[in-house]
Design a protein around this nucleic acid. Structure first.
Length: 271
DNA sequence: ACTTCGACCTGTTGGC
DNA sequence: TGCCAACAGGTCGAAG
């Protein structure tokens, strides 16, 4: 489900509801996520007040005075603000009950997400330590992509989806950004010119910003923290459009697999 | 250091 | 209608 725009949409949605709110209790219905939810989390979070709600790549970082709650939504996770009367669904694994009676509810059918309690040096945590720059930050440039890609033979799509290179670019937006920049997803990362990487960096930034503005992409079930879908799906040019005409040249879009991910592109417009 | 691939899960879709 | 395989927005960690 969530790539960077969907995670950012979630962050913005929950921020006003949880900032400065104290956790009164936590209800664990299923602790087996990608990694198990630890007893330490259940023990230490109650009583704490959320001071900050940040994002690093696709990780959400909910800061308190004594630790940080790190949440990843995996492939199918979501966070919603609900009230206490809301019925509990099959995949509603965690409720974080707040002092105003609302609940921050974590739902995740596939359980690829995680919820970890971090104490001390967030930066050096193994999951965060090796992450590349934020695509919407000033560190992310065409020069950065060019420098990191020299001698690499992997397909450029796999390269830009590698979180050590740049965070937050998943299958949808990688496909879209490559279409916008006219680069074939199959091209070896190491054989792309600086000029083209500058264009690509610009397109990645642009597509992510537009998607955030639209509230993310809802394919089947993504909604923001209030239950509203995102409207970026209608702006997708290639993802999910295999066989349909290219919006530029009208030829049918092709579909291949790269790094086990389905990849749609235009073999005429992308070279 | 880089690349590939299996693994983790459930739900949906499409073919027969 | 049922069954089964394939696939889905992610990414870690082992192995080559």
């Amino acid at each position: 489900m969530p790539e960077l725009p969907e995670v950012e949409t979630t962050r913005r949605g929950i921020l006003p509801h949880i900032k400065s709110r104290r956790v009164t209790k936590i209800i664990l219905r299923q602790e087996k996520l990608r990694w198990p939810i630890t007893p330490a989390l259940a023990k230490e979070l109650p009583g704490q007040t959320f001071r900050s709600v940040k994002r690093r790549g696709k990780y959400l970082l909910l800061g308190t005075d004594i630790g940080t709650l790190l949440i990843h939504l995996g492939m199918s996770g979501s966070l919603r603000i609900v009230d206490q009367k809301r019925p509990v669904g099959k995949h509603d694994h965690v409720d974080i009950v707040l002092d105003d009676g609302h609940i921050l509810r974590y739902t995740d059918p596939r359980r690829f997400g995680c919820m970890l309690w971090l104490q001390s040096d967030i930066e050096s945590h193994p999951l965060l330590r090796s992450l590349g720059p934020e695509p919407l930050g000033s560190q992310f440039t065409g020069v950065h992509l060019f420098d990191r890609s020299r001698k690499r033979v992997a397909a450029i799509k796999s390269f830009i989806m590698d979180s050590r290179i740049v965070v937050g670019v998943g299958n949808i937006y990688a496909s879209e950004a490559l279409f916008l920049s006219g680069i074939s997803p199959k091209r070896a990362a190491g054989k792309v010119s600086l000029r083209r990487y500058q264009k690509l960096a610009e397109c990645i930034r642009q597509i992510l910003q537009q998607a955030i503005k639209a509230g993310g992409t809802t394919l089947r079930d993504f909604t923001d923290s209030n239950g509203n879908p995102g409207y970026f799906k209608q702006s997708l040019r290639v993802y999910g459009r295999a066989g349909l005409p290219c919006m530029t040249c009208k030829k049918p879009l092709k579909e291949i697999r790269l790094g086990q991910r389905s990849t749609v592109y235009c073999s005429t417009c992308q070279t």
